[in-house]
C-alpha cells in the first residue's frame, strides 16, 4: 500500500486546496487577502493549484497601510502579472482621511490596528462574503483557537464564545446578510511547513526574506529597519547589519533578524536552530499585552 502514502506536505496541501475550493463553491464574492508575505504567497500558490487549468476565481485584495517594504509591493505586482489574477488595492491612508481616524503616535506608530477599518470598508464596497487569509494557528495562542471558517459579524468581530462547531471537513459557510466569513486554509501549517513548501514548490519570494545589508535601529532585542515611518531619536543606535525578514508585515512593527541566510535551505536550517518563535522575534506590536491578538480579532482584525 506504500504507493498510497502521502507526505505531510501533501496532506496539508490537499486539505488547503479542499478549503480553497469550498470557498469558491460556497460563496458568491470571495476574495484572497494578499500582503506579499510568505503566508499569503503560499495561499496564492495553493489557489493556483486548486483551480488549474482555470484561473483563480477570486480577486487578490491588498489592504495597503502605506508602510510597506517596497520589495513586497514590487513582488505583489509581479505575482499579479504572472498569474493574471485581479488585484484590488485599498489604502489605509484614505480611510484615515475619510473617517478622521486618529493615528497612533510614538516611535513605532503602526497602522496595523487601523487596517481593520479599511478592510471592513473594502468588504462592504465589494460585497465580499468570504475573505481568505494566511493566518496559521501556530502563530499565536488566540489564533490557535480559531476555526477554519470563522464567522464575523458586520463589524468583523470575532466572538470566541460563539464559534460554530466545525466537524470533519464540512465547513458551514452560511451567513446572514452583512456577516462575512474569514477563511484560513493554512490553519494547520506551521512556520517550517510554509518554508518547506516554498522550497518544494520553488516559489519565488520577495528579496527581503534573504540576507541583505540594511540600516537598522537597534531597539533592545529588535532590529527595526530605518524608514520614514519610524521616529529616530537622539541617542538611538543605528547600525548597518546583515539581516533578513522572517515575516513581512509593516515596516513599523516588523523586526528583522540578523542572518546570512541566502537560500531557503539556509533559512530552514536557521529556523530549525532558533529557540525564539516567529512572532516573538519579529512582531513588536504583540508585545504590548498578553491578549493583543485576541483583542484585535474582536475588533475585526484577521
Amino acid at each position: 500500500m506504500s504507493q498510497y502514502k502521502l507526505d505531510y506536505l501533501d496532506l496539508l496541501e490537499a486539505e488547503s486546496i479542499h478549503i480553497m475550493r469550498e470557498v469558491a463553491g460556497q460563496f458568491e464574492r470571495p476574495a484572497l487577502l494578499f500582503s506579499g508575505g510568505k503566508d499569503s504567497i503560499t495561499l496564492v500558490q495553493l489557489a493556483l493549484k486548486a483551480f488549474k487549468p482555470g484561473k483563480i476565481p477570486f480577486p487578490l485584495v491588498h489592504i495597503d497601510t502605506g508602510h510597506n517594504f517596497p520589495e513586497a509591493i514590487k513582488y505583489r505586482d509581479e505575482v499579479v502579472e504572472r498569474t493574471g489574477a485581479k488585484l484590488i488595492v485599498r489604502n489605509v491612508a484614505d480611510t484615515i482621511k475619510a473617517k478622521g481616524l486618529k493615528e497612533q503616535t510614538g516611535k513605532f506608530a503602526s497602522r496595523n490596528a487601523l487596517q481593520s477599518y479599511t478592510l471592513l470598508d473594502t468588504i462592504e464596497e465589494f460585497g465580499f462574503d468570504a475573505c481568505i487569509g494566511g493566518a496559521r494557528r501556530d502563530e499565536e495562542k488566540a489564533r490557535a483557537k480559531e476555526r477554519i471558517f470563522s464567522v464575523r459579524d458586520e463589524f468583523g468581530a470575532w466572538d470566541p464564545k460563539r464559534q460554530r462547531p466545525e466537524l470533519w471537513n464540512l465547513y458551514n459557510g452560511k451567513i446572514a446578510k452583512g456577516e462575512n466569513v474569514r477563511v484560513f486554509p493554512i490553519s494547520n501549517w506551521v512556520e517550517l511547513d510554509v518554508w518547506n513548501y516554498i522550497k518544494r514548490e520553488q516559489i519565488e519570494l520577495p528579496s527581503i526574506y534573504f540576507t541583505h545589508e540594511r540600516e537598522v535601529l537597534v531597539h533592545g532585542e529588535y532590529l527595526v529597519a530605518v524608514s520614514p515611518f519610524i521616529r529616530i531619536d537622539e541617542g538611538d543606535i543605528i547600525e548597518t547589519r546583515h539581516v533578513r525578514y522572517r515575516t513581512v508585515g509593516d515596516m513599523t512593527c516588523t523586526a528583522a533578524v540578523e542572518s546570512t541566510a541566502s537560500t531557503i535551505d539556509d533559512i530552514v536550517a536557521e529556523i530549525h536552530k532558533t529557540n525564539i518563535s516567529e512572532r516573538g522575534e519579529t512582531r513588536i506590536d504583540d508585545q504590548i499585552s498578553e491578549a493583543a491578538m485576541e483583542d484585535r480579532k474582536k475588533n475585526g482584525y484577521f
Binding site: 494557528r137 501556530d138 499565536e140 495562542k141 488566540a142 490557535a144 483557537k145 470566541p160 464564545k161 464559534q163 490553519s187 494547520n188 498578553e290 491578549a291 485576541e294
Partner: peptide, 17 residues
C-alpha cells in the same frame, strides 16, 4: 489561549497545537 480561559483556569474552546 483566551483571556477568559486564563482568568478562569479552564479550557473553553479547542486549541490546536
Amino acid at each position: 489561549g483566551l483571556r477568559a480561559e486564563r482568568e478562569q483556569g479552564i479550557t473553553i474552546d479547542v486549541a490546536y497545537k
